[in-house]
Design a protein around this nucleic acid. Structure first.
Lengths: 195, 195
DNA sequence: GTAAATAACATACAGATTGTATGTTTTCAA
DNA sequence: TTGAAAACATACAATCTGTATGTTATTTAC
């Protein structure tokens, strides 16, 4: 006989999986809770027992996706030890992770709209959020880490990453975008002007 | 007695204004059509006569916002005649335009989610879409306009603009972000490596 | 080991929303 | 001026969401 813990975990997993699939395919707004329950093979009651509402399930889905991406990026940095290489490896890992079908939509479109940007920032902060700023700081000449607006550059740069991932997911040429990003990174870590 | 054209125009304007205010304040999903009709001082019937559905009204709102932003940017370039100056002026104009309350939310959050990215790209293309690529190309050393992945850089850069506008709208220090963007632009137009 | 308590899940319901179908009134066109 | 068409209003059917209330399974206390 399964323990309560097991039952809960299995049920949550089924619901999160079904939610992930539907939210990714049809979007958050166009997915109904009956849809989700049906896809998960359970009743709506079960869903509302484990999640406060549809948005709460969406949060669980997005958190799971964000965690996977963060883990992949983190792992990519383990092998490399020079800072610039780690940064480039992280970039590549990000693009690879974001190619998983539906992930761009979930993390970059539906997530911000359904959960709000503040919540997305919280999730980002609690998963891989600081990775890019840190990587950037590590890979930069000493004098620039204080002279440049690091925080702002990292934020703006992460938007560039996201847009590149979106374009690639939309069928754009991946190499062109990876080039563009690599150029930005190279400039920031090497060619950026002293100030 | 008002002509039919006038009646329609006035009604559409009232509905678009009411929609703009509510979508900006509460978001697309949390705004109901009774809300909109009430705010506009008309009935839902009037709204459904002029717009196919709630999304169609949203499209009208977003198009209006996009047109105003594009117009402001276009105007900013008129005074300046050197390419780099025009690019910088355009950047400044974009940030100024995006400070209008609710505009960031409408154009960068609710729009993409409610209308889809494809539709947003269409709107962008039909308003100011090409401005940044053109400005970039004009302000660049000849040899780079062919050697660099211009299209990709412009797209990724426009994402950086958007993120900066979001951060500023969220209360972040505007100067820091404008600096960061200016640095990216300067590098692209001047310091970018030959290839 | 059993009974009370609690967690897991199912069913039933109330309120609200969306888009449409069907009226009514005002302008337009012949 | 009268029929047609556009502008607007009202009424309706089909969801959908969240909650309240049941029922069944598992813990916990004794």
């Amino acid at each position: 006989m399964p323990t309560n813990r097991d039952r809960s975990a299995a049920m949550r997993a089924k619901l999160i999986d079904a939610g992930r699939a539907l939210f990714a395919e049809k979007g958050f707004a166009d997915t109904s809770t009956p849809d989700i329950a049906r896809a998960a093979g359970v009743t709506r009651g079960a869903m509302y027992h484990h999640f406060a509402d549809k948005t709460d399930l969406m949060r669980a889905v997005v958190e799971q996706e964000a965690e996977v991406v963060a883990r992949d990026i983190h792992r990519s940095g383990q092998a490399t030890d020079d800072a610039h290489g780690a940064l480039m490896a992280g970039a590549k890992a990000y693009f690879t992770a974001m190619q998983v079908p539906g992930r761009v939509r979930l993390l970059l479109l539906e997530g911000p709209s359904a959960l709000g940007v503040a919540e997305m920032q919280r999730i980002d902060r609690e998963t891989g959020g600081q990775t890019l700023v840190d990587g950037l700081a590590d890979a930069m000449p000493e004098h620039n880490t204080t002279a440049l607006p690091l925080e702002e550059l990292a934020n703006v740069l992460s938007a560039a990453f996201d847009r590149a991932a979106m374009a690639i997911a939309d069928g754009a040429d991946a190499a062109g975008y990876e080039d563009a990003i690599a150029m930005l990174l190279s400039w920031l870590t090497g060619g950026a002007p002293k100030r």
